[in-house]
Design a protein around this nucleic acid. Structure first.
Length: 198
DNA sequence: AATGCGATGGTCT
DNA sequence: GACCATCGCATTT
């Protein structure tokens, strides 16, 4: 994960394929990162654009720190902080592909036990968006500021050695009103990618 | 398929 | 008081 020392747009695509893990009393959940977006301090779409505040403090910490923010009154989203300490930048995890703990994700997302037979759309809907990933992994404001590279952490990042090939796509970011034309979103050809078109 | 909108609360002006 | 790095549901094509 040495590439996390790079700027967010340089590091972002290298996060694809790596694993996000959550180990709470409910159990272990693991997902492969399939969609990311970069945000930097001089980027009008970034929470850090207007400077260092209490809310965005984590984004200025060392690379590998989690920046978890609350938005629209109900959703959490997680970023992986990149670049040098003191620089407000990070990579938003927009989607993961479930690898382990699907039953736990299901319970967190739908507030019910996972049935024996499931529709494909219900499975994709578990983690095909940033707010959904946070909910499926049980990520909340409690996790803001933790070191994702700490191997004993509850929420953590793990590099994956399996050499799996996927197609790489590079598009504009989703859901922003500033810097709409900047190509800082990257995703694989996974069906768990939130939106095919920007 | 695509579009529209309400929910709901923290953050900043 | 306005604005959100969203989601789910309703309505229209």
């Amino acid at each position: 994960m040495d590439f996390l020392q790079l700027t967010a747009p340089q590091a972002a695509a290298q996060l694809l394929g790596n694993l996000l893990i959550s180990e709470t009393p409910e159990g272990r959940v693991c997902g492969r990162i399939v969609e990311v977006e970069a945000y930097t301090q001089d980027d009008p779409a970034s929470h850090t654009f207007k400077g260092h505040t209490a809310r965005n403090n984590s984004m200025f910490q060392q690379a590998g720190t989690a920046y978890v923010y609350f938005t629209y009154g109900m959703h959490y989203c997680i970023n992986i902080v990149t670049d040098k300490e003191g620089t407000g930048s990070g990579v938003l995890i927009r989607a993961v592909e479930p690898v382990e703990g699907i039953e736990i994700m299901w319970r967190r997302r739908y507030k019910e036990d996972m049935p024996a037979t499931t529709a494909r759309q219900r499975l994709l809907n578990l983690t095909n968006g940033p707010g959904k990933v946070a909910q499926a992994f049980g990520i909340t404001r409690e996790d803001d500021g933790v070191n994702l590279l700490d191997t004993s952490g509850i929420i953590r990042l793990e590099s994956d050695s399996t050499t799996e090939a996927w197609r790489l796509f590079n598009t504009t970011r989703i859901g922003i009103s500033q810097a709409k034309d900047v190509l800082w979103r990257w995703h694989t050809d996974s069906p768990y990618v939130s939106k095919t078109r920007p």
